[in-house]
């Protein structure tokens, strides 16, 4: 069966034509929305947050696509914008909760997950989300891209504009922290 999805080059060419500009952008959204959504969702945890981030991402893409010159692949550029938006959202969320203690913040994530209709994980899944939520920003991005999406380090390096070696070090640190966090909490529960 033939794949009718237009290539990135075709989409960009149509976007540059005034009469097909909007339809090309709608097609671009349809092409990338699910991949970007899941990328963002695993970073920000909650659907409402992921929806905010994704809509903001596409609005920024619409405003900036005229300036996209193709130095990077389109998907890399899109992932970069989405990642930055997600990290900015997380920072904003952290500022709002800055007056809460760490325990209160963790319980907030945990309580929200228990009440979340769009999350059906078990206790370990919730602990994993709490542990990810406690990671520094860059480690959180690296961990979710590698742990959940099995993304290659070379692709991650292009998206995050950093070195493969640095990414591996970040991922290893993040894995150890998450493992320690989950084990400690499970042992406390016993």
């Amino acid at each position: 069966m033939q794949d009718l999805t237009p290539s990135d080059e075709q989409l960009l060419e149509r976007f540059r034509q005034p009469d097909t500009r909007e339809s090309a952008f709608t097609q671009l959204m349809r092409k990338y929305q699910e991949r970007l959504y899941w990328h963002v969702r695993k970073m920000v945890t909650f659907h409402e947050d992921a929806d905010d981030v994704l809509q903001n991402t596409f609005v920024k893409v619409w405003k900036a696509l005229d300036n996209f010159r193709g130095e990077a692949q389109l998907y890399t550029w899109l992932y970069r914008i989405a990642t930055n938006e997600a990290l900015a959202h997380i920072k904003q969320r952290q500022r709002k909760g800055a007056d809460q203690s760490l325990d209160e913040e963790e319980s907030t994530v945990s309580e929200r997950l228990k009440a979340d209709d769009y999350f059906n994980g078990d206790e370990v899944d919730r602990l994993l989300q709490e542990a990810i939520d406690a990671l520094p920003d860059k480690q959180r991005a690296v961990f979710t891209m590698r742990y959940y999406d099995a993304m290659k380090y070379e692709d991650m390096a292009a998206i995050l504009e950093t070195s493969v070696g640095g990414l591996k070090a970040n991922y290893h640190h993040a894995v150890k922290k998450v493992e320690s966090y989950v084990k400690d909490r499970l042992n406390q529960a016993l």
Binding site: F119, N120, G121, A150
Partner: peptide, 8 residues
Amino acid sequence: AARHPWHV
């Protein structure tokens, strides 16, 4: 790692 507990 392979689990997917999220929905939309």
